[in-house]
Design a protein around this nucleic acid. Structure first.
Length: 870
DNA sequence: GACTATCCTGCCAAGTCGG
DNA sequence: CCGACTTGGCAGGATAGTC
């Protein structure tokens, strides 16, 4: 953007003849032309970024106004926070166009002596070129009336404040992406409208005048939009693009409109016809408004997503979901070659690289320059994403969220200044808002989801599992989270005793601005127990060892932040795209071939030795996913599973539980963990559900026409439920199957392993027994049209036409493209896609397959695979 | 360097809500 | 029922921190 003299208004050039000598400046602006935001976080180093949405957003918007139009009259309609931080915004850069040749335009830094609220009787602060008019109608001057109406929802004539000087520059700088429509004559910038001048004019039709506020509109549509404001459904539109992204119907909490103001703080640019949304806080760009809105919560923390099992809280629900996988032990990523399931994509990828020599990242998708994900047209999925163990919960609504009050800003809670806590904070944090609230925990073991009455098994027991319920009771979650952990992590055998009898007495939540939340709970036992009594208490309580450990962990973490550890950092530039021309590197075999490999029973990771596996499992068992709890515990270690109990009595109980629950298979595995060979892992499927229900497990088979259906795979004697999880891992080869006679990979809901078989079975029992037909969208088809049709079921979009020939090592490379369904899309004639050796880490000459290909495929000299008919 | 846990963002499906 | 809108899952990689 150039000023009238051709000077880039974004440039800060102290030596420029256009600019006078500048005072010491904050860190330089990002001069990238893509950054039109003015007040970047780098300019305000003393402000925690997440505080911006609270009260800096108006300033930031102001800054933008300064940049774009040299008129800074913009403030949020949102009232200032009742308890503003003690920050002092020191400098605000303003750009002042001038008609003077010697000083055609200048950037200056206006000191802001005080926070822009509450200290002036008029709530108005005036600085050079800057006007803060909080709580009143203020807006940015620029563009025509239509645009301004969209932007501000304010009359065009009310620019400025009666308390302030005229703030209308001789020129108007608009960003190139927003072509300025021709301003109406009444909008002349040289004739700054004033409130007094804002009156219906004779030239306008009466129907274009708001009957309520007598505001003028250039079109009937503008008036229609405007009238929404008077109907109480204020359109929360972007100041800059006018896009309304919160439907007025959703705004069910009328006084809380300001809550959503933070979402407005973005601006848009049009690049090559594409609208790009920029976050006003961190200037990240987004292709979709949805992404931006999702991102905005990272700054505002307007919504918080606490983990149901620990005290962490996340800004995005997805983060929490991924995090909770570590609590539940779900292993949703199932390798299609060997059916082995893994907790994370990372583990799966590592597995496929090392075991199968396949790099799925080269064939599955591509990333956009922005870090997004775009699936290739012919992307292959070398794994199955098994359904979530817990059913999808109904989405929350705004009304729900607002009603429960926990989405209210922290200032809604009567804050209590607690300066003493500042000692634990950094210098910047010292200036943050610190509030303390406490709440008495009321044990509520009867929480139920209101929407899904059928969800009484897992959800009912987990209490706060439901996100909505979780918000409602998040202050009391801690007590339940402990019991949850007891349930989910360790105590599958004691489903009945899930809720601790004595919950925390009260809980103190310390909020440090929006940067951190320190959450502590004080239980009654904490108040009265000493160590000895705690131990005795632990003996009384049923599931105490985990409980005690959790308490200990709690104490260790008492001063740690409640939210995740990573601070939000500016996005790095996307890395250059990875070249797909990877030279074949030959078959990568398992680096440990001495038979000592061991697999983690929880996450599926492989370790070169059982010792390492045990260490890994020990860490996993005795810590939350947090690294903070990764410290090793050495007291009262179970000789069987190396689980560490805090007390000897807890260990005794734990060992007793081993004795009660262990099956011969379990004992066998515990004593001699067999390394998993390729043959033994191929049928690592869960059979608990079927076993419990007296049914044979299902296995995926292949019909001649390529359809997928399930059929009874093999029979197995009933197993002990408790030991079933472990039994999957070491002794997974089904009876009656040889290495050459494997069933195809499964899409059986319970086919992934988890450390929580009890809950899985409870949940998965909702799946119909036997064959599970799939509809065209991949959903389970329920014959009688029940709710099961809504069960999330993620089929492999590429039906496995062939598979058994791949299972045994060495793999049949010839059949790989077909087995992976590397078929050209469309048309009746299905042709295999070209085989790309680089995709798989097989050298072209490796040829590990020794036997005859079950399917008559050969590689032709052109590198394409052809089917030999007949 | 390997690994863990969290973060990122485009895309999309599903749910919500009011007309 | 429909459309606008919100919400959250998925994807696969990035990243910071730990070992």
């Amino acid at each position: 953007m150039k000023c009238e003299h051709g000077r880039d208004v974004f440039e800060v050039t102290p030596t420029s003849p256009c600019s006078p000598p500048q005072p010491p400046l904050p860190p330089p602006l990002n001069h990238s032309p893509t950054h039109t935001n003015f007040l970047s976080p780098y300019l305000l180093p003393s402000f925690p970024p997440s505080l911006y949405p609270i009260w800096l957003a108006p300033l930031r918007s102001l800054g933008r106004g300064v940049v774009e139009s040299s008129v800074a009259v913009l403030a949020n309609d949102a009232p200032p926070p009742p308890h503003p931080p003690t920050h002092t915004l020191t400098l605000i850069r303003t750009h002042t166009p001038s008609s003077s040749q010697t000083n055609c335009c200048s950037d200056s830094w206006a000191p802001l002596a005080a926070p822009p609220w509450g200290e002036s009787p008029t709530d108005t602060f005036l600085f050079p070129h800057i006007l803060f008019s909080l709580g009143t109608s203020a807006y940015q001057r620029g563009g025509d009336a239509e645009r301004r109406e969209k932007i501000t929802g304010r009359p065009a004539g009310k620019v400025g404040s009666p308390h302030g000087p005229s703030l209308h520059p001789p020129t108007l700088h608009l960003p190139p992406p927003l072509p300025p429509p021709p301003p109406p004559p009444s909008e002349g910038l040289t004739a700054p409208p004033h409130s007094s001048s804002y009156s219906p004019t004779d030239s306008l039709k009466p129907e274009l005048i708001c009957g309520v506020c007598h505001r003028l509109f250039s079109s009937a549509s503008s008036l229609t939009v405007h009238m929404r404001l008077h109907r109480g459904s204020r359109a929360l539109s972007c100041r800059y693009c006018g896009k309304v992204f919160i439907h007025s119907k959703r705004l069910l909490g009328p006084p809380s409109l300001t809550l959503l103001a933070g979402d407005e703080n973005h601006f848009v640019k049009v690049v090559d016809g594409n609208v790009i949304y920029f976050c006003s806080v961190c200037e990240r760009s987004y292709m979709t408004l949805s992404s931006l809105k999702r991102h905005s919560n990272v700054h505002s923390w307007r919504r918080k997503y606490p983990c149901h099992y620990c005290d962490k809280v996340f800004a995005l629900a997805e983060y929490r979901t991924k995090h909770e996988v570590w609590h539940t032990g779900e292993r949703r990523y199932q390798c299609i070659f060997c059916w082995d399931a893994f907790a994370t994509y990372y583990n799966l990828k590592t597995h496929q690289k090392t075991i199968h020599g396949i790099n799925p990242s080269l064939i599955s998708s591509e990333k956009t320059a922005n870090g997004g994900y775009k699936q290739k047209a012919n992307a292959l999925k070398l794994y199955r994403l098994l359904p979530m163990r817990s059913q999808k919960r109904p989405y929350k609504t705004y009304s729900d969220s607002l009603h429960n009050g926990l989405l209210l800003p922290p200032t809604d809670t009567p804050p209590l200044s607690l300066p003493g806590l500042g000692c634990a904070l950094g210098p910047g944090d010292l200036q943050s808002l610190i509030t303390v609230s406490s709440s008495v925990i009321v044990a509520d073991n009867h929480r139920k989801r209101s929407r899904d009455s059928s969800d009484t098994t897992e959800e009912g027991s987990r209490g706060g599992q439901d996100a909505e319920t979780g918000r409602l009771f998040h202050k009391s979650r801690k007590s339940h989270s402990k019991s949850d952990i007891s349930n989910t992590k360790q105590l599958s055998a004691s489903v009945g005793s899930q809720v601790k009898e004595a919950g925390p007495l009260c809980q103190i939540t310390v909020r440090i601005g929006e940067e951190a939340i320190v959450k502590r709970s004080i239980s009654e036992t904490d108040l009265r127990r000493d160590k000895a009594s705690m131990e005795a208490e632990g003996d009384k309580e049923g599931n105490c060892e985990e409980e005690v450990r959790e308490q200990e962990s709690d104490h260790d973490m008492e001063d740690n932040l409640w939210r995740p550890y990573y601070s939000y950092k500016p996005k790095r530039k996307a890395q250059p795209p990875l070249s797909t021309s990877v030279a074949p590197t030959g078959i990568k075999r398992r680096p440990w071939t001495n038979g000592n490999a061991a697999e983690c029973g929880t996450c599926g990771r492989w370790f070169s030795s059982p010792r390492k596996r045990d260490k890994h499992e020990l860490i996993g068992r005795n810590s939350s996913p947090s690294r903070l709890s990764r410290r090793a515990l050495s007291r009262h270690t179970c000789p069987q599973c190396h689980k560490v109990c805090k007390t000897s009595s807890a260990l005794t109980r734990h060992i007793r539980r081993h004795e009660l629950s262990s099956s011969p298979e379990r004992e066998k595995e515990d004593k001699a963990p067999e390394p998993k060979t390729t043959e033994t892992v191929v049928n690592a499927v869960s059979r608990d559900l079927e076993t419990e229900k007296g049914q044979v497990p299902s296995a995926l088979s292949v019909s001649g026409g390529g359809g997928i259906f399930l059929h009874a795979g093999y029979e197995e004697p009933p197993r002990d439920t408790v030991s079933s999880r472990d039994s999957q891992q070491g002794d997974a080869t089904p009876v009656g199957y040889s290495a050459q006679d494997y069933p195809l990979p499964l899409i059986v809901p319970d086919s992934y392993r988890s450390g929580k078989k009890q809950e899985e079975n409870l949940l998965m029992s909702s799946y119909p027994a036997g064959a599970l037909p799939f509809g065209p969208l991949g959903k389970v088809m329920v014959p009688n049209g029940g709710d099961l049709a809504k069960l999330p079921f993620y089929p492999d979009p590429y039906q496995l036409l062939y598979g058994p020939q791949l299972l045994a090592y060495p793999y049949n490379l010839a059949a790989l493209p077909v087995a992976l369904n590397m078929m050209a899309p469309g048309g009746d004639k299905v042709e295999p896609l070209p085989f790309l050796p680089a995709i798989f880490n097989y050298a072209a000459t490796a040829g590990p397959y020794m036997g005859a290909a079950p399917h008559p495929l050969v590689a032709n000299p052109t590198g394409h695979w052809v089917r030999i008919e007949g």
